[in-house]
Amino acid sequence: MELFEARNVNKVFASTQALTDVSISVKEQSIFGLLGPNGAGKTTLIRIINQITAPDSGEIFLNGEKMTRADISQIGYLPEERGLYKKMKIGEQAIYLAQLKGMSQRDAAKNLKQWFEKFDIMPWWNKKVEELSKGMQQKVQFITTVVHQPKLLIFDEPFSGFDPINANLLKKEILNLKAEGATIIFSTHNMGSVEELCDHIALINKSKKIEDGPTDEIRMKYKSNTFDIKYRGEFKDIDLALGTDYKIISHDESEKANTLKVQYMNGKSNNELLSAIMPAAEIMSFEELIPSMNDVFIKAVEESNKN
């Protein structure tokens, strides 16, 4: 079931088109990656979801119903540019932010204490923000985003500024939140984390959506029929056997095993490639290369820029 849906959203700022006819739909209890180069319109879309700006046209739905201002208490939003009140004590501040999302002071304090314990920052409850390290501030910001148990979580570049240990902690928590039923929209340039976390992605470039689908399917879609093959035998035999239907990208010979990177042209299949090599050498391993999210991103954006 869809928890969130945006239909044909358009937004123009002065003379810049920020979003053109963008539609996305996010399944309940899934992680949705919102990707795109800088300035593509991701943050605008996120702000529209948060009711910070209104779309010029188009509609957005939460739980199948048109979203209203009142729905924002069901959203937790961690903006890309984020901060805290520097002079305020973090405990007090976290309670205030939770209250603004509609929690009672008591519930807020109770939940926050659990989260603070979990993130090992309870001793800093009464410290002012300016006394905290940046990593600790990031933890506080993450906690204030999720403490009111929103149905929909929106993270814009959540990992920026985190060291690898804390980034890992954060990834774990995001997966935990999903397991507990939360739906997550996740915008990042860190493609590794997209592969790890996202069930579904949408790619936006120059205000338009250019890709949308389950992460695995999209990666498959961008595969280039390239294979890594380990074999025992002579390279020249293989070269001879493959002929012009196949393109050898690289090959390497070592004592342990010889390797070969090969791509087949359209009209061929994996098995045909395999049977073409089999007579020429003994195959040790045969692996199709699925492009990384990074490759997909670059390729998709470059193609869309060409058009």
Partner: peptide
């Protein structure tokens, strides 16, 4: 102060 410390976006995602 709210704008400079960048807390503002969090605040206006909660209140008008």
């Amino acid at each position: 102060e709210e704008k400079k410390s960048r807390i503002i976006e969090v605040i206006i995602s909660s209140v008008k």
